[in-house]
């Protein structure tokens, strides 16, 4: 589409998804989320609200977390996309973050899981020091209706601690 397909209702897109080059013709009104779920059958990306609030559809686009419901597939042309299916090793070994979520009973129904895991992955990738409150704030764009978030925070905190060292301790700080 980069050449001259101006004014189209469908377009060819070429992108890398979980390390695999993908080329498809898509209707331009197709969201990235629906493209992943329906055209590529990567149904790990979930649609919770389709208006950009709940975060369940979060994927990594060139390494940054984005809402795949608020993006057209055609806008992802030329990008590198990582979905929840792209985190575990090919032999099925969970990523450290996924393993931490298992160890800490991170989720219940887990419909929100892909969004939380990918959002949390960017925190590890960015390598910034965070406090527990920072962590709350960083994941506040993702809704979970089951857990009350404590187990999600515990899971992420443990994975960050393993990867980057302990969180910043603010427990002694005054209000």
């Amino acid at each position: 589409m980069s050449t001259n397909e101006i004014g189209s209702v469908s377009a060819a897109v070429s992108l890398t998804v979980n390390g695999t080059k993908v080329e498809r013709e898509v209707a331009v009104r197709t969201s990235l989320a629906d493209f992943l779920r329906e055209d590529l059958r990567l149904t790990g990306t979930h649609l919770g609200c389709e208006h950009g609030v709940c975060g369940a559809c979060t994927v990594l686009l060139d390494g940054a977390a984005v809402r795949s419901c608020l993006m057209l597939a055609v806008q992802a042309d030329g990008t590198v996309v990582t979905t929840i299916e792209g985190l575990a090793a090919p032999d099925g070994t969970l990523s450290p973050l996924q393993q931490s979520f298992m160890d800490h009973h991170g989720f219940q129904c887990a419909f929100c899981a892909p969004g939380f895991i990918l959002t949390a992955q960017t925190l590890i990738d960015r390598g910034q020091s965070l406090s527990r409150d920072d962590l709350r704030s960083e994941i506040s764009g993702n809704l979970c209706r089951c857990t009350g978030y404590a187990s999600i925070l515990d899971s992420i905190e443990a994975a960050i601690t393993d990867a980057l060292g302990p969180l910043i301790d603010t427990s002694g700080a005054s209000k």
Binding site: G44, I84, F101, F107, A110, A113
Partner: peptide
Amino acid sequence: DRRLLIGKGAY
């Protein structure tokens, strides 16, 4: 958890 954490749940 395994299937749910790797995006292989079947909703």
